[in-house]
């Protein structure tokens, strides 16, 4: 069979990726694993933002709030009430989803810049609560002393590898969930709403309900990220629910490509890696990143993933025939 059959590319890529991800702790250093873990939890936050932007066409400024609510609940339930493992993260995600249910009622009717402003206000509300309700959240000092759980006898606190697999499992689950959601009838209806709300309403679809549900799903994704953030860093403070955290996720999604889940992870990966690598090289690393960001916005407005896709679409035929040619010459 010809190795360059276009139908085979996806499964081959997927299985290579799976093998790589599963063997990562043994292929690379502890440091690399740590970076991957960070990219995964921030990636979830970015994905939550990208999901709303891609499926609803709405940019939210309060996804970090859901991220933080889950993190705070893990922190408070574990350090203050010493509840055993599955309760704090499940409660955290549950409360974040409930909060989304509540805030969604207010925010979801607005569109465009009004949605932006409403989510900004609601996000700041959560931030103010985290910063001011000091008897519960310890104010700006933040809550420390959060420890990752022991799973089937393996401590995720002591071993980065265990933590990595714990998170990879949840991360893959969320990615699968979002991808399935996108392909489902629900996803199709949602895209209909995004492209022409009036037409969908006229056809009898519950437009508001669809948007409301999408908002809650997005919050769920961010909340899962928040749980792992709290577990991995061992602390949480108002910065994680702040506007800055949300804007960083927005930057990552613009960098990677705001319409795709892959772009979200890619953008987060690039941003977080550059942050650490560049800062070791030069003190002016923020400037370098700023210039890079400017270049991307100007020349690749769809982000890196979007541009890569465009290039792929344009040269797909040529590349495939090139690959096929390569295969033929390689044969004896």
């Amino acid at each position: 069979m010809n190795g360059s059959d276009p139908r085979l590319i996806k499964p081959v890529l997927a299985s290579v990726l799976t093998v790589l991800l599963l063997s990562l702790p043994w292929l690379t250093s502890d440091y690399f694993v740590m970076m991957t873990i960070r990219i995964m939890y921030f990636g979830l936050l970015t994905m939550s933002l990208c999901y709303l932007a891609g499926e609803l066409g709405l940019v939210s400024l309060m996804q970090a709030a859901f991220f933080g609510i889950a993190g705070y609940f893990v922190a408070i339930l574990q350090t203050r009430y010493s509840l055993p493992f599955p309760i704090p993260p499940l409660a955290g995600i549950g409360v974040a989803v409930l909060a989304a249910g509540l805030f969604g009622l207010l925010a979801i009717k607005a569109k465009g810049v009004y949605f932006l402003m409403l989510t900004l206000v609601l996000g700041q509300l959560v931030w103010a609560l985290a910063s001011q309700w000091a008897s519960m959240t310890k104010g700006d000092s933040g809550i420390t002393g959060i420890y990752a759980p022991v799973l089937f006898g393996f401590s995720a606190e002591k071993s980065k590898t265990v933590f990595y697999f714990f998170q990879l499992f949840a991360f893959s689950g969320v990615v699968w969930f979002l991808a399935a959601l996108k392909r489902s009838p629900f996803g199709l209806m949602l895209r209909g709403v995004r492209d022409s709300e009036t037409r969908m309403a006229m056809l009898g679809y519950p437009v508001m309900l669809l948007r409301y549900l999408a908002f809650i799903f997005a919050a769920l994704v961010a909340a899962v990220g928040g749980v792992f953030f709290a577990y991995f860093t061992g602390l949480i403070n108002p910065h994680s629910v702040s506007l800055t955290a949300n804007v960083e996720a927005l930057m990552a999604s613009i960098l990677g490509g705001i319409n795709t889940l892959f772009g979200a992870v890619l953008g987060t990966g690039i941003l977080k890696t550059l942050d650490v690598v560049l800062s070791g090289v030069t003190e002016r690393y923020v400037l370098v990143m700023g210039v890079m960001f400017l270049v991307i916005i100007m020349f690749a407005p769809k982000g890196i993933a979007g541009s890569a896709r465009q290039i792929w679409e344009a040269y797909k035929g040529k590349m495939l025939s090139f690959l096929a040619l390569g295969n033929k010459t390689a044969k004896p």
Binding site: D30, Y31, M34, R38, G142, F229, T233, G234, L235, N237, H239, S240, T244, D275, V276, S279, G280
Partner: peptide, 14 residues
């Protein structure tokens, strides 16, 4: 940002 700080403490150490 403390998340950045914790990561960089790890860089300094490892």
């Amino acid at each position: 940002d403390v998340e950045v700080m914790v990561t960089k403490l790890g860089s300094l150490k490892n």
